[in-house]
Computed example of a mutant assay.
Amino acid sequence: MASSSSSALRELQHELEAKASDLNKLQKDIAKNHQVRKKYTIQLGENELVLKELDLLNENANVFKLMGPILVKQDLAEANANVRKRIEYISAELKRLDGTLQDLEEKQNSKKDAILKLQQRIQALQAGKAKA
């Protein structure tokens, strides 16, 4: 009896280690998601600011786009359209990241619950062993 409970205990501890490792990986993925989301949020703010500036210009204003080390003259309507497309793309990426984050957080909570249950089973086994 003692060897079978000892073997079960070892098995549960290995399972606990595996789940803890999975949880650690999920937490790293969540942190990475937050970093990327922060970068996109900053870009969105910058592009919205550029769009406001473009809206203040009159139709015949000169607009330049930085391409490498060179400023290239660009049509105001084209510049406006490009900034709007960029804002649309960034907003879509933020929405996608939010969905991914929600999924990761649900998985994280599920792993935490599974780890807690495993810890309780291990404690119960150890308590049973101590009584014997």
Rank of each mutant, 00 (worst) to 15 (best):
M1Q: 07
S4T: 10
S5W: 05
S7N: 11
E11I: 05
L12P: 03
H14A: 12
H14V: 04
E15F: 06
L16G: 04
E17K: 14
E17A: 15
E17W: 07
A18N: 05
A18V: 06
K19F: 04
K19V: 05
K19E: 06
S21K: 12
D22F: 11
L23F: 04
N24E: 14
K25M: 05
Q27T: 01
D29R: 14
A31I: 04
N33R: 10
H34M: 05
H34L: 10
Q35I: 07
K38P: 00
K38I: 00
K39Y: 09
K39Q: 10
Y40Q: 07
Y40L: 15
Q43A: 11
Q43E: 10
Q43K: 13
L44D: 00
E46K: 13
N47F: 03
E48I: 03
V50K: 12
K52H: 13
L54G: 04
L57S: 05
L57Q: 07
N58V: 05
N58Q: 06
N58G: 02
N60D: 14
V63P: 02
V63Q: 01
F64P: 04
P69N: 13
K73D: 03
K73W: 00
K73N: 07
Q74F: 01
D75G: 03
L76Q: 07
L76P: 03
A77Y: 00
A77P: 01
A79W: 07
N80F: 11
A81Q: 08
N82S: 12
N82F: 02
N82M: 11
R84K: 15
R84Y: 03
R84P: 01
R86Q: 13
R86G: 00
I87Q: 02
I87T: 08
I87F: 00
Y89H: 10
I90T: 14
A92K: 06
A92V: 02
L94C: 01
L94F: 02
R96K: 15
R96S: 11
D98M: 08
D98Q: 11
T100C: 06
Q102L: 12
K107T: 00
Q108E: 15
N109H: 12
S110E: 14
K111Y: 15
K112E: 15
K112C: 07
K112L: 14
K112H: 04
D113M: 09
A114M: 03
L116Q: 15
K117W: 01
Q120F: 11
I122H: 08
A130I: 10
A130H: 06
A130Q: 15
A132E: 12
